[in-house]
Each structure stands twice: as C-alpha cells, then as structure tokens.
Design a binder for these strands. Structure first.
Lengths: 226, 226
DNA sequence: TTTTTCGTTCAGTTTGCATTCATGTTTACG
DNA sequence: CGTAAACATGAATGCAAACTGAACGAAAAA
C-alpha cells in the first residue's frame, strides 16, 4: 500500500517514513503544500498523513483541494497540541482523523491501521476465505491454520487482491498501489509474483484462489462461485 | 527496557538511577516538570517513575499531560507519606501505582516489576515457548531446563523479542527501547546480538526461534505456528 | 596492577529476494 | 486450424540487507 507523508520538518518526516516503510508501506514524501497538492493529484495513494502546520499552503488547504478534486483516500492530519481550531478545520476540510503533536508512533500506527481497514470496508484485522486467513495487522497468512512464509511483496500483492476479493484487479492498478512512481512500466513482476503466490498458497492447485481474467487482470475468489 | 526517572532531589534521583541501571534498565533522568514533559513526549519509554512533589509543574500535572498525549507507558508515582491527596490525584491523572516516601528500594523494585509485567500483558513472571523459558524477575533463561549464560544486553534483546512473540520487531524499535537517545543509528549491534543469541539458545540450529523478516526486523516464534 | 568480561566496531562474506530475461503455454479470434 | 497477443514459468542476475569472526577498548573484577 502506498502512503504520502506531508510534513515540512525533515526529521519528523524521515522518522515517519522509516517507520511505515518497516511496516510494509510504500512511502512517498512531500515537504510543502504545493508539492503535496501535486503528488496527491498525480498518484493514487491509499492513505495520506498531513501536518496542518505547513508553511505556505496550509495542510487544511491541501486536504480541501484534494477533496475538491474528488480524491477519496483516507487522510490523517497532525495538529499542534491545543490548536483546537486546526483540528476542527481539518476535519471539516475532509480529513478522516487527527493526532495531536507531539505524538507517539504506536498511536499514529493504530489510527492508520484503523483508517486503512475502514477504507477497505473491513470490520476486523482478520479476513478469511475458506481455508485462507490473512491477518492484516501482523501481515501474516495462514492456509488451514498453517502459517505461510511470504516475502514483503508477495504479501502486499496478496493483501491487495484479497481485500478486493471478487473484483477484477488490473496489473496497472497493482503496480500503482504496490510501487512508487519510478516503476518500470513494462515489467512482468506482477505475473511473477502471482505465480509464486499461487504456488505457495496452493501447491496442489486445488483451491485456485487467484483467477486470471485475460486482458483485464486478476480476481481473488474461492470455490467455483463466479 | 528504557525507564524515565522524574525526581528533583538529585541524591534520590541518582540512587534510583543507579539501582535500576544495575537491574538492567536503560535509565534516563529528568529533574523538573518541563523536562519530564519534553522527554516523555519525545521518547518511547517502557516505564516512568515520577515524584509528585516537583517544583513548578507538579508530577500529577506531568502524568495528566502525558496521558492526554496518548502516552500509555506505566507510571509509578512517589508521594510523601501522609499526603493522601497527592496519591489520589496522581492515580486519577493516570498513574498506575504509587509508593510513599521514604520508601525501601526493594518495594519500588517489586512494584516496577509488576507494572512492567502487566504492561507486557503477562500474568506471571515466567514465560515459556516450547523448551525455552524466561524468568523476567530473575532475568534468566533456560532451554530444556538448562540455564543459559546470557549477558545483560543479550538478555534484554531476547526479553524484548520474546514478550512480543509472533509480531515483527524492527531493529529501530529494538534500539529505541534498549538504548538511550544518543545511540549510533548506523551500528549493527543488534545484528551481532541476534547472532550471539541464536548461537546460545540453539547451538544446533534446530529450534530457530528468532526469524529474520528481511527489511522489517525480527520475529520470535516457535514451530510453524503463527 | 593485571586479568577478564562484554559491548561495540569493522571488514568481508553470505544470502534473500526483487527483478529481468528467455522460453513455453494458453486463449481469443480470424 | 493458424497465429498473435497475453500470460506463465524456470532460471539467471544483481544488489542491498543481514550475518559473522575477529579485534578493540572500556570497565569491572581479581
């Protein structure tokens, strides 16, 4: 999943970026309002963290303009402690949640997990499809109760497909959400990962949870149903 | 584990600091309210000891503000004997336990152990994973009933991983909780300790209790389970 | 003092894994 | 059928992350 971090203070921005990279996100950064506006309108992020106290174009303004452009990804704003007004304005501008600075990473992490989960339309951190269970918080997958040993990208690919189970996901959509902007557009990585996933999830090839929709992409489903 | 001691009286502060250093904690100190507020919001401590009778911003106030910021680490407050009110206010502000001054170190030690254990979500001082058993109070580890000879840091590293068994712990997280703020960020100590731990716990390399999650950190887990 | 213990650094090596490439297989459609 | 495009797959590559053994040096112990 791809996240945009908008924060002018370099140290804090880096700290957040490092943390969420380690947590498995693809992270991009913007240091000021205009940059944030550009990046947010150019790329399909899955989530954004925005400091409202930006120099120049304020964070609230950034969020407002994103929303006016029809951007729907969840936005978490960072407000200075006691700045009641910022918080209210931010939420009115279309932010989904807020955390006051100084904050503790676990708190930000928790709220981001919640936002991300909600935006995927899930009630819980755990999703099951027959014998296949994903734990979004722990980033683990089990088949028939046995944990699978997946690499970061294998897991990312599977999570993206599974949280959109039943719908067709194109290869471009996958690369847009699993890679940052400088991705080689004519690579076949996705095909390779799909292959490896199929082999790891279902070595006997009996479940066939990932169907190919020729010319359109892939669809995660179980059973013969549709 | 990293602890913050907030106490204005230098002699007492030093006594506590020395005691808990020897007990294996990484100890940092604050001498007044503002300093305590700053440090508590800046660093991810695992526990704090706060004297309520601070000049300037009172200890109760410090705890209240920490809690408002979403800080969750356990807090033990020190109150003057007979100062009934302080104790009540402190607990209401979000402290977890109290000790009245003058106190006996063993008592403080015992309460801190209890708080720390509870915050790790453990019911007992003893934790087992298959043949591996840690005794948090005695800071000892045994494999198949045979005691291991671990150094302070080796034990600390193992304890941190084991009390979070099943989840991925990043190297950054480890250094944040096992070292104080002036830690050389591009050191590979953690890797070295992980290596030594693996060798000591499991010389035949059959249990493989510490798994590497490339790019993310380490995960303590036994068998294929979870 | 000398000796030992341990935390830390460093350099060299290994390994995991994302990515590419070449080739094989399926499918749609004329 | 035939053929071209889309997809699958096994092996090869390259690089950064992780591992490791040795050495250093500070502090504790003897």
């Amino acid at each position: 999943m791809r996240m945009l971090i908008v924060e002018d203070e370099a140290q804090l921005r880096l700290q957040l970026a490092q943390h969420f990279s380690e947590a498995g996100w693809v992270v991009e950064e913007a240091a000021d309002g205009p940059e944030a506006l550009y990046m947010g309108s150019e790329h399909p992020y899955d989530l954004a963290v925005v400091d409202v106290g930006l120099p120049g174009v304020s964070g609230v303004e950034v969020v407002r303009q994103w929303r006016e452009q029809g951007n729907t990804f969840p936005v978490l704003i960072l407000t200075a402690r006691g700045d009641w007004q910022d918080k209210v304005e931010g939420l009115e501008a279309g932010a989904d949640d807020y955390v006051t600075k100084p904050f503790h990473l676990p708190e930000v992490q928790a709220r981001i997990n919640a936002l991300h989960r909600r935006s995927a339309g899930l009630a819980s951190d755990r999703v099951s499809f027959g014998p296949i269970t994903l734990d979004l918080a722990a980033r683990t997958v089990a088949v028939d109760g046995v944990a699978l040993d997946l690499t970061t990208f294998e897991y990312n690919t599977l999570e993206y497909l599974a949280t959109r189970a039943g719908t067709v996901v194109s290869k471009t959509e996958l690369t847009e959400h699993l890679y940052d902007q400088d991705f080689d557009r004519d690579s076949n990585v996705i095909e390779v990962f799909i292959g490896r996933l199929r082999k790891k999830i279902d070595p006997q090839n009996t479940l066939k949870p990932i169907k190919t929709v020729r010319g359109a992409g892939y669809r995660f489903v179980l059973d013969g149903s549709r």
